[in-house]
Amino acid sequence: MTRAITLTPERRSGTPRLTPDVVPGVHRLEHAFTNCYLLAQGDAWTLVDAAFPNTWGPLIRAAHELNLRMRDLQGIVLTHGHFDHVGVAARAVEELGVPVFVHADDRKLAAHPYRYRREHTPFVYPLLYPRAFAPALSMVRAGALRVRGVEAVSELPGAGLLDLPGRPEVVFTPGHTFGHCGLLLRDRETLLSGDAIVTLDPYKGIRGAQIVAGAATADSAQALASLDAIAATGARVLLPGHGEPWLDGVESAVASARAVGRS
């Protein structure tokens, strides 16, 4: 893996950080404990997930660092419609005319990213898990409380290749939200898992492959069942929506998530 590049002089947890070529042509932008991925194909590129409103500046700087131009952004694919994945989408539509893609079952959520079904109230989690304070504070600083929804979207299919740079293949993984999708880069044996599996649960501050706590998951039983679809990809690398890349294959990530279970 290549070196990470800090995109701001600030020295605090949650600082935007770019890791070029996590796998060839896939660049990770981490901001406030949340990941976006830039899929480059020549001069053109796709953005997977859109983090927070304050991610706009780091995204521009990341594109410049990678010799990509914002005008060559061909589309934004949202793995799901939660506020921490929708952040810059509406601005990209307005300023760049970029199409945004989300599964039909998350279309309303993308437009109203705070109105999501969850199994438990999120407010008790910082009391139960003190390590959740750092992610929560970083997300607030990144604009988590003022995310605008995006209504001008195109619907993702439940499966199949997308005609976008990187040639991502949709893998339907409902449970975290009812329209959650991962993206498989088959030629690079890499799965962008969104929040179907993470390696950091921001609601608990706990690292390791797992599904997200019921504070943000609509149906944990369905999320655990969707691990079968993740395992079936046979991907060698898993790139989550939160946390570090998992390089030991999706089968071991799935085994870990099943062992952790629901919370």
Rank of each mutant, 00 (worst) to 15 (best):
M1Q: 08
T2S: 14
I5F: 13
E10Y: 10
S13N: 06
G14L: 07
T15Q: 06
L18Y: 09
P20H: 13
P20T: 11
A32D: 06
T34E: 01
Q41H: 12
G42S: 02
G42I: 06
W45S: 04
L47R: 07
V48N: 09
A50V: 03
N54T: 09
T55Y: 01
W56P: 06
W56L: 15
P58M: 10
I60H: 11
A62K: 10
M70T: 14
D72C: 04
D72W: 02
Q74D: 05
Q74K: 15
H80K: 04
G81E: 02
H82M: 10
A92C: 15
E94L: 07
E95Y: 03
H103Q: 13
K108N: 15
A110G: 09
A110H: 10
H112A: 13
H112D: 15
P113W: 04
R117T: 08
F123P: 00
L127N: 05
P130V: 11
L137E: 06
M139H: 03
R141M: 12
L145A: 07
G149H: 00
L156G: 14
L156K: 14
G160M: 11
L164R: 05
P165Y: 10
V171H: 13
P174W: 14
G175L: 06
C181D: 09
G194F: 12
A196H: 13
T199A: 00
D201G: 01
P202T: 00
Q210E: 08
G214N: 01
D219Y: 08
Q222I: 02
A223H: 04
S226I: 03
S226T: 03
G243F: 05
P245H: 10
W246C: 03
D248M: 07
G249V: 07
V250W: 05
E251A: 15
A255N: 11
S256E: 15
V260A: 05
G261K: 00
